[in-house]
């Protein structure tokens, strides 16, 4: 069973549907006990970093997620759900992140490139990482992005893929059983569904 965490940060409808179409048995929940009992965890999310952390803490989910990850339970963070893995964000005034990965979340700098970074962009796969999430995905595959902030991991080795948008930023992170995507696999047609399928089957 996959626990899809619904903590009030945006719609989880598409993520649920994508997991189900790939054969996942999904429990939409904000109950820490459900998350504890699940085989895998998915943390989606759009919105503000502070609000999201406040909800995770208030609902007793932050600690459960940290413990699950410590026990090598497969975890997939999507968009804001991925950014929350880091220690802090430029967007956040009050809250620190989960701190599961070392690093910070920064705002895409203003320049010739439009912000939000919105639309289909390519991922450059870090072959050394050999990330199971990217099994069967070709280098340069297009996925759908919709964000103004991006993660800056302090450990180079957690970078599983990068993407260009004025800057070269980390679009997929991977460390042991922890996976995170800055883009939306649930909105990325065939490539996205393959990534979700990989999370269910090989991660």
């Amino acid at each position: 069973m996959v626990a899809l965490i619904d903590y009030g940060m945006g719609n989880i409808h598409s993520v649920k549907k994508a997991l189900e179409i790939c054969g996942g048995k999904v429990l939409v929940t904000n109950n820490p006990e459900d998350v504890l009992a699940a085989e895998k965890i998915v943390l989606p999310g759009v919105g503000a970093f502070d609000d999201a952390m406040r909800e995770l803490e208030k609902q007793g989910l932050a600690l459960v997620i940290k413990n699950a990850v410590k026990n090598n339970k497969p975890f997939l963070g999507i968009c804001l759900g991925m950014q929350l893995l880091f220690e802090k964000s430029e967007e956040a005034k009050a809250k620190k992140g989960l701190g599961i990965l070392k690093g910070v979340v920064k705002k895409i700098p203003k320049g010739d490139f439009k912000v939000p970074h919105m639309g289909w962009n390519q991922i450059k796969i870090n072959k050394e990482d050999n990330c199971p999430l990217l099994d069967g995905i070709i280098d340069g595959a297009y996925v759908y992005f919709c964000h103004s902030y991006y993660p800056v991991p302090h450990e180079i080795k957690v970078i599983a893929a990068t993407t260009e948008h004025g800057i070269n930023f980390t679009s997929i992170v991977h460390k042991k059983s922890v996976y995170g995507a800055q883009f939306h696999p649930e909105k990325s047609q065939g490539v996205g569904l393959k990534i979700i399928d990989n999370f269910l089957k090989v991660c």
């Binding site: 759009v46 919105g47 503000a48 939000p116 919105m118 919709c146 964000h147 103004s148």
Partner: peptide
């Protein structure tokens, strides 16, 4: 924007 973010 404050509630849901610029991106949407």
């Amino acid at each position: 924007v404050k509630k849901f973010g610029s991106q949407c």
